[in-house]
């Protein structure tokens, strides 16, 4: 066995890898942000007393959780194309990832909402807060604090899964790798490097979420205890 690794050729292409990594982060950032919004709205919808609303949200969650991400990406990609709508590969990738992570986020946040004791809501009702005020002040923040670890893992998973969007030639990190390895014939080295970059991106995201947690959960910052 003769393992002959040559990283020099690969490392020469660092600007391309950097661009790819930044695009991956952008995709993750957009999908995390919009996915959180969808997740909150979806969780409220799933808990709605309106059967149509909760049914629609349930179907969305189940449809996404029971189909492969790649198929979802193709559905968005070819769906938009067949409607005659032209979007960049980046936009399609961001949309598909958002739709995907929104479903998982809905389930996670719904579990958080369900974990808020009935007594908390009664106390808020007794203080004459409106439904919207109760959701915002009494349900949502503690719920998100409780599920924050699951939520952030989901977003890191999403960032890793965004590699699949290379299939519709969104120029993220894996697409760059595919291109570099076919150009240099140094496939193993390329993917070793890319794996290391993904690890760095994951660590960056985790650190970011940790810092964000300190900002948005002042109680945790002061006491350090889980809610």
């Amino acid at each position: 066995m003769n393992l002959n690794l040559d990283f020099a050729t690969i490392l020469e292409r660092w600007p391309a890898f950097l661009d790819g990594a930044l695009l991956t982060l952008q995709l993750a950032f957009i999908a995390t942000l919009l996915g959180t919004v969808i997740g909150v709205l979806g969780a409220i919808g799933r808990r709605s007393h309106h059967p149509v609303v909760s049914r629609i949200c349930g179907i969305y969650v189940e449809a996404i959780r029971n189909t492969p991400l790649l198929v979802q990406i193709f559905l968005v990609y070819f769906g938009l194309a067949s409607l005659g709508l032209k979007f960049s590969a980046f936009a399609v990738a961001a949309a598909a990832l958002t739709i995907n992570v929104g479903a998982y986020t809905t389930e996670i946040i719904r579990a958080g909402f369900d974990s808020i004791p009935r007594g908390q809501i009664e106390a808020a009702e007794g203080l004459a807060l409106s439904r919207a005020q109760i959701y915002w002040h009494v349900v949502m923040w503690p719920a998100i604090e409780k599920v924050y670890p699951s939520l952030t893992s989901q977003f890191v998973l999403l960032m890793l899964a965004s590699s699949v969007t290379s299939q519709i030639s969104a120029e993220e990190l894996t697409a760059v790798a595919n291109y570099v390895q076919s150009d240099t014939y140094r496939a193993f080295e390329t993917y070793i490097l890319v794996a290391l970059v993904y690890i760095v991106l994951s660590l960056v995201m985790r650190a970011g979420f940790w810092l964000l947690g300190l900002v948005i959960f002042p109680r945790r910052r002061r006491l350090g205890t889980p809610l």
């Binding site: 908390q120 009664e122 106390a123 203080l127 807060l129 005020q133 002040h137 503690p142 109680r219 809610l227």
Partner: peptide, 19 residues
């Protein structure tokens, strides 16, 4: 049924401010 994520002051001021 105090709100666990809010300080005592925030627990008390929440309803007067929002309602």
């Amino acid at each position: 049924n105090l709100f666990p994520h809010l300080t005592i002051e925030e627990n008390i001021t929440l309803a007067p401010c929002s309602v």
